[in-house]
Design a protein around this nucleic acid. Structure first.
Lengths: 355, 355
DNA sequence: ATCACACTTGGGAGCGCTCCCACAGTACCT
DNA sequence: AGGTACTGTGGGAGCGCTCCCAAGTGTGAT
């Protein structure tokens, strides 16, 4: 008798119907309702119909927490975005990724947990969080090569998908844009326009994608039989100011250059300013091609030719991949490095007036 | 004997320590550990220390699902962003809001659930979702006046905070930028620069914020003793194309105008193009002031004077408000319309070359 | 008729927590 | 000595599910 009726049976906040109530209404057992709700095939037609009717009438929606507790899964994935990155990339990058993820999740019961990691303190908080809270999987956006998070997740045996590789032989599942082809295409485009002295402004080269864009640049030169002059390569850091600085260096070293492939639109904006300051006409004297096809590209003067990569689609594909990994959870280690876990998405050159 | 040892006690995936194990280790009861973990004051110093030691040694992290189930709360809030909006606003709007929310959540156990709502189908899916899944509260970004979601949430008795009001007497809790003062300041600035024939391009006027900006424009004119010529008001829709069109109309109707206050930077970008096409010099012939201080403002040519509103701070304040509402959950209806539930944040004029 | 083997179904146990009651211990009055 | 009033603590019950075993029913082969 001790504790009983602590809270009246129907007196709970909101009073949402439970499995049990649905079962009673449909005149079946709990297990059966559970089977119907979870789409198990081992239920007869009539029973299923009866249960579904009861579900509708009562407006039953399963309690997530109870389900998570009983089934030891959470039906949630986390999207982890480093704060710094969210500033650099193509402006709508963040919302596009989220939109893609959302779209892929739309037909699912999964929910999306968002985390922005700024400093290291937050990073370790996140680590603790992920360790304890069991999301079913994690989407990691643009991790740096030295980030400990991926390893941690592997240790915790939580599925991960990265956007972008950390290196050529990334062991984790990833989705990446074809940066090499994108850059190569951009430079080939400049060459086809008659440019011969083509410089490049790179992103941070410890970011693999930036390295790829540089590789693509070089490949295009080689393919065209132009020799790769290292004086034409100016490293920068994805920022507008970095773009300014690099453009300045380039003009100092190779005053005769007639085109620049810039590894991001933001840096291209900086470069364009310097070109104007130094009296260089775009595209008359110097043609310019950017990368990202971000919002600023078509607003630049002249509008900037740029390489578009499908951000939203990346979000979608990452999510597909992650859901697949979660679904066929095999004992860790049994998972190989099969090709289903690596997806390269094509880029597209968007020609505008700057080239 | 029937069912037992279905899963070995320690054999669960991941094998994370439970409250019970911590209790055993610390030589206390479950209740006591729970009290320590939840920061209850009714625990003696020594016991607390012992439990904390056990928690550390075992690396205990409470299981969220179990907690949610037992306590009938979720420790999660949802951020709902209409898809369309995420495109219009100041470019980094989305990530800024999220960053603010994240910052406010940082010291909390709360997690952030993100939902982008596109079409009506998704909207009703979300409604169902919120009805069933019990988040502890919802942040609603830029809802339209006719959106049924706020009402639904009120019915479900789920705390809500809006970013931006739907009308002057918004009954729900909200955080908004001081659009009136921002606009008034911008126009006063133009007046102080000697401009006398000042037009405005408005946003969608069924968005309350757009209406406020128009009001601010008018107030500034009145304060300066200039008469409000309705021919100087051109309604648009927050898009670049809309800005182009409105600027065209303005020039057609009032060729002599010497300044325009535009209710968003994106529209200002459109307006600026038209000014260039029509041979008007900025700021020589026509001064331009935008609103949002988005990424494009300082990249325009000439750089655009604009009104900045603190997006990240709005996210932070919204979250603070929501957490407070969740914390002192009083029986619905008992909550009044007190001022703690309405926050107006100041805007700031960022002067650049365009004015 | 008997057995083997489906296919369905009911419901016990248990997931890891919180909540609350009961009770021990201590202190301070009458 | 007995009463009252705390503070701390242990642990039962229960949150709403899933999982699985057992049992019921039906079918066809022996």
């Amino acid at each position: 008798m001790a504790t009983q009726g602590i809270r009246g049976p129907g007196g709970r906040r909101g009073g949402r119907p439970t499995l049990e109530e649905v079962a009673a209404r449909a005149g079946v057992g709990r297990g059966t309702v559970s089977r119907v709700v979870n789409g198990s095939p081992r239920v007869s037609q009539e029973t299923r119909a009866a249960v579904e009717a009861a579900v509708d009438e009562l407006g039953y929606v399963p309690n997530r927490a109870a389900r998570a507790l009983a089934a030891n899964r959470t039906d949630a994935i986390a999207l982890v975005v480093p704060e710094v990155e969210s500033r650099f990339f193509a402006e709508p990058y963040f919302s596009d990724i989220v939109r893609g993820v959302g779209a892929a999740l739309d037909s699912t019961e999964m929910q999306l947990l968002l985390t922005i990691v700024g400093n290291d303190r937050e990073r370790s908080r996140l680590a603790r969080y992920l360790a304890g809270n069991r999301v079913d999987g994690v989407l990691l956006v643009s991790v740096h090569a030295d980030d400990p998070l991926p390893e941690l997740l592997v240790q915790l045996d939580i599925p991960v998908v990265l956007s972008g590789r950390r290196s050529a032989d990334e062991p984790l599942a990833w989705v990446d844009a074809d940066n090499v082809a994108g850059a190569r295409g951009a430079v080939a485009h400049l060459i086809s326009r008659g440019r011969r002295t083509i410089g490049t402004i790179t992103g941070l080269l410890d970011v693999y994608g930036a390295q790829c864009r540089l590789d693509g640049y070089r490949q295009a030169l080689v393919e065209a039989g132009l020799d790769a002059d290292e004086g034409l390569v100016a490293p920068a850091d994805f920022t507008e100011e970095g773009g300014r600085r690099a453009m300045g260096e380039l003009l100092d070293r190779r005053p005769g250059l007639d085109a620049v492939f810039v590894a991001s639109d933001v840096m291209a904006a900086g470069a364009r300013q310097v070109l104007r300051e130094r009296g260089r006409n775009v595209p008359g004297d110097v043609a310019l091609v950017g990368f990202d096809d971000s919002a600023i590209a078509h607003r630049m003067d002249p509008p900037l030719t740029s390489v578009r990569w499908p951000i939203e689609e990346m979000g979608r594909e990452m999510t597909r991949l992650l859901l697949a990994e979660i679904a066929d959870r095999r004992p860790a280690g049994a998972r190989g490095v099969d090709d289903r876990r690596r997806i390269v998405l094509p880029t597209e050159l968007v020609p505008r007036t700057s080239s």
